[in-house]
Computed example of a mutant assay.
Amino acid sequence: MDERWLQKQVRNCLRHYGYDDEMMPLGKDEWRDLCAHIAAAKEKHRDADMYELVHDAVYRFITSA
């Protein structure tokens, strides 16, 4: 999975929820964790839409942060 593409999707999703890079800067560990979570979810649910997986992961990240 292309990590740059995935990070772009996560950034777009964060903007959807009203956040930007300055409001909620993510460290390398947080990026790695989010990308790993999304990749694992895709492996588990191969037919799932990436858009939904990204939104689910970002929502969980925001609500637990």
Results as ranks from 00 to 15, higher is better:
K42R: 07
Y51Q: 14
E52Q: 07
D21G: 12
W5P: 11
L26C: 03
I62T: 04
K44D: 13
L34H: 13
R11A: 00
L53Q: 03
A36P: 05
R60L: 11
T63P: 00
Y17Q: 08
M23I: 12
Y51S: 13
D29F: 03
A39D: 05
E43W: 07
N12E: 15
D49V: 10
D2G: 13
L53R: 03
E30G: 08
L6P: 13
S64M: 03
E43I: 03
A39Y: 04
P25G: 04
R46C: 02
R11G: 01
Y51V: 14
A57C: 04
A48R: 13
S64W: 00
E3H: 10
L26A: 02
H16W: 03
G27R: 08
D21S: 15
G27N: 08
A39T: 10
E30S: 12
Y17M: 09
A65R: 09
D49A: 01
D29T: 06
I62D: 01
M24W: 11
L53T: 02
V58S: 04
K44A: 13
Y17P: 10
C13K: 11
V54F: 01
E52V: 05
A40G: 08
D47E: 11
D33I: 01
K44S: 07
H16T: 02
E30K: 13
P25R: 12
Y19D: 03
R32V: 00
L53V: 03
K28T: 08
G27K: 09
D20N: 15
E52C: 06
G18D: 09
C35R: 07
E22C: 01
A41F: 02
L14H: 04
R46T: 09
A48D: 04
G18W: 11
E30C: 06
M50H: 02
F61N: 01
A39Q: 08
K42T: 07
Q9P: 00
R46N: 05
Y17F: 15
Q9T: 10
D56A: 14
K44H: 12
L53S: 03
D33Q: 04
E30V: 00
Y17N: 12
G27W: 02
V10M: 01
V54H: 03
Y17G: 05
P25V: 05
R60A: 13
R32G: 04
D56Y: 09
